[in-house]
């Protein structure tokens, strides 16, 4: 079975919000739209977004680390938001595992949003139905697009390629490989919701440089006037 999902690399996300704006741009005029705003240019603006980028500071100054954290529906493999929906408007697609809302059936009771521990659903105050990330279902299933564009808008927009899109059930997909090889993890795994989206942790890039690596003993021009560390032969002797 296919389970499409995003793998978000927190190590390279720079918090530019390109995914947020491209998501809104694509989806507000697409299948899932509109994504209306209230008072967009006034004080206290408010509106529907499927994706938000948050920022956290970890540690205490000066030993701090900034983490930009994009958050959208995680397309849980066991989505708690689906069984509680009284109308069947919320469902998980059999063929690709994407969790969707049928806006023609939704009665706007908001019960599903209570059942999502991630706060991934946002109510559309104008159309009075529940909305959420669709993984750009209208793009990724559109066979008229070239394969390279059959990806969510956020993935295409990300300037640092922090977002990998793919089938996390296919062990050979780029997404699965990233999860496996770069320590991909799920959010709030304690609930057993099995989020399909994964996050790649921040990684520290460390490099060990030894003293003798800084000095070129084999410099042919002998500019550095290096004294050989010993009288014995060294591998650098080759140059002599």
């Amino acid at each position: 079975m296919t389970q499409l999902a995003l793998v978000i690399d927190l190590n390279v996300c720079v918090g530019c919000h390109a995914c947020v704006t491209s998501c809104k741009e694509w989806n507000t005029s697409g299948w899932a739209g509109p994504m209306p705003d209230q008072r967009p240019y006034d004080a206290d603006p408010c509106g529907v977004f499927f994706n938000r980028v948050q920022t956290y500071e970890i540690g205490e100054y000066p030993n701090t680390e900034t983490l930009h954290f994009p958050k959208s529906c995680l397309h849980c493999e066991d989505p708690p938001c689906v069984p509680v929906c009284p109308t069947g408007a919320s469902y998980k697609r059999e063929d690709n595992g994407v969790v969707l809302v049928d806006y023609d059936k939704c009665i706007g009771c908001k019960y599903c949003s209570w059942a999502c521990p991630y706060g991934a659903r946002e109510f559309d105050e104008k159309n009075k139905v529940m909305k959420k990330c669709t993984l750009c279902i209208d793009r990724i299933t559109d066979m008229s697009l070239p394969e390279s564009e059959r990806k969510p808008a956020c993935v295409l927009a990300c300037p640092t390629s922090a977002r990998i899109f793919g089938d996390v059930h296919d062990p050979d997909s780029e997404a699965s490989r990233a999860i496996r090889e770069q320590g991909g993890y799920q959010l709030q795994p304690e609930w057993g919701t099995e989020p399909a989206n994964h996050y790649l942790p921040r990684r520290r890039t460390l490099m060990h440089i030894h003293r003798d690596e800084l000095i070129r003993a084999d410099n042919p021009l002998k500019k550095e006037e290096v004294e050989l560390p010993s009288d014995q032969e060294t591998i650098d002797d080759i140059a002599w």
Binding site: P45, V48, Q54, T55, E57, I58, T66, R121
Partner: peptide, 17 residues
């Protein structure tokens, strides 16, 4: 980490959440 603070929730106004 035992010391994590949110610096931005992603928007400056309100949301459904």
């Amino acid at each position: 980490h035992s010391n994590i603070q949110q610096k931005a929730q992603g928007f400056m106004g309100e949301s459904f959440n």
